[in-house]
Nucleic acid binder design. Structure first.
Lengths: 303, 303
DNA sequence: TAAAAATACTCCATAGGTATTTTAT
DNA sequence: ATAAAATACCTATGGAGTATTTTTA
């Protein structure tokens, strides 16, 4: 028959993802028979089946599995072709899909989004806030162009650019404001409230305190820094928050911030993107805007 | 407009290669207007021109240049999808495009092609005989599936598999058969006839004799080993030939073969293919047939 | 029997062909 | 003036939709 088409590969990829002809067709904004026909055509042109059809679910064959891996790469490369064109005339145009982790987003973005138009007027930013692991997945899948995370992520295929370093500060109930700054070791004696599992900030805090990673400890986990701060304000314990969050969170409850006796824990904030992205040059410019935003916030948090 | 299609990328690639709408259209087996339309559509969908049109020739724009690089990779990856399918049912089917360098082809292929059907009946082999540099280019372009060459080639992106090592023997006029085997150093005193530039065998011979690579020396270069052997038979000088060539070439003229005093020069024969080829597993099997053929020939040449 | 994929068929968008015009040297 | 690309216009292929049938747990 005829040659493989990108359309077939896109439909195949969708079906491989969702494992259901009807829903895959939806996600491609076509009808189920249209998708069925294209998949079948791809299979016959290859001369070998890609899916096992069951009445309850559709699964990739062994061959289909290997095929899907390569197809993903091809589709990503084709998407990057369009990205290239967006940079052809010197300035970045269209929509930039940016991911940010939850412990950075609410504090950094207001300043970042205020600064960005100064250098990139008209650039359309779409934001996604979720945890690092998911952001990495979406970068690899081509659903994101770049992400702002805590470094290092050490993911093969991703470039990381370090932007600034910020301290993690201890937040205690305001009533304890007069006590001396504890050492990291003394933290283990306090009720340390942390974000739920999956947040890199949780892991960084635990590792600073030399505590094991393990699963949640009952009642001590929050789903956002704001919640944790409220819990601290209510006298339930203490927590760590990033310096950047101080201006916002420090005023929302009766809490008091302090450093540690000895060295301060810190995290490095940076941007990551696919090695292969054609947007690299422009992402670097945007990274420097992020850096400026971060430094501005830290200066005001400290001053 | 609509999305990018593979068809557009194929046409674009053809035009980027040949730089001429009419001839590119020919190479795609379509009419010139059909190609023009697709190229233009690609350009408008990208929003930026890919070619500078002149009345005498068509050139890639700077952006087009970068674009072409990526497109090549995509098209190769898509072609490899089809290759994958050829291996899906366990055995390799269809046509295998194999390159061989000229100093191996005539001696190895008869035996190889006789052995191959024993393990790969029905496999359709298409052969291309040219020098290493060109074979590497055609491998990278996806015009070849594998090549038999002298190792190492050390090309990034290509896998090499060493198969056997063979000596290079000195061929002298039969009249000199009684003289003692010379040392490599003594070769510089003889009229050494070699293949023209570009043949790796020439370079290997020169390097063994500690001679500079330089360009041709008048009258001392031949275009094939057979020619060299005839020249040696006519008393014009001496030459080096691969051991494998002895059974054929040793009888075609009044010449005498000998080794060297001290160590024997040798070359390593192997197969190369793209790292990314899905045929790797099967190519490895074919490589072992090549190896068997080589060893058979060497055994009969020595025995 | 019920959910889901495959078929049947119709329609329209679009790729391609031929003939012709425009363009740039 | 000429080679070559673009345009015009027509045809035919094929992708998509709706309606329907087939499949199998």
């Amino acid at each position: 028959m005829d040659n493989i088409t990108l359309r077939q590969l896109r439909y195949f990829d969708a079906l491989a993802r969702v494992g259901h002809f009807g829903r895959a067709a939806d996600s491609c904004a076509i009808s189920q028979p249209a998708l069925s026909v294209q998949i079948k055509e791809l299979e016959t042109s290859l001369g070998t089946p890609l899916f096992e059809r069951g009445p309850r679910h559709v699964r990739l064959t062994g061959f289909g599995e290997a095929f899907a891996q390569r197809v993903k790469g091809i589709l990503r490369a084709v998407d990057e072709l369009s990205d290239m064109a967006r940079t052809a005339e010197g300035r970045l145009t269209g929509r930039l899909r940016l991911g940010v982790i939850p412990t950075i987003a609410p504090y950094l973005l207001p300043t970042f989004l205020r600064l960005l138009p100064e250098t990139h007027a008209g650039l359309d930013i779409s934001l996604r806030e979720t945890m690092t692991a998911r952001l990495i997945g979406e970068l690899n899948d081509g659903q994101l162009d770049a992400a702002i995370v805590a470094l290092p992520v050490s993911e093969p295929g991703l470039t990381e650019v370090a932007l600034f370093e910020e301290n993690m500060v201890l937040l205690r109930p305001a009533s304890e404001a007069d006590r001396p700054a504890p050492s990291p070791a003394e933290l283990t004696g306090l009720r340390l409230l942390l974000l739920e599992e999956g947040h890199c900030f949780r892991d960084q805090a635990l590792s600073f305190c030399n505590l094991p990673g393990g699963p949640a400890r009952d009642g001590l986990d929050g789903t956002s820094l704001s919640t944790l701060v409220q819990m601290v304000g209510a006298g339930m314990g203490v927590t760590l928050i990033p310096e950047m969050a101080l201006p916002v969170e420090g005023r929302s409850a009766p809490v008091s911030a302090t450093g540690f006796a000895g060295g301060q824990p810190s995290r490095r904030v940076g941007m990551i993107w696919r090695d292969s992205t054609p947007l690299a040059e422009h992402l670097m410019q945007i990274a420097s805007v992020v850096e400026q935003a971060g430094r501005d916030i830290l200066r005001s948090a400290r001053g």
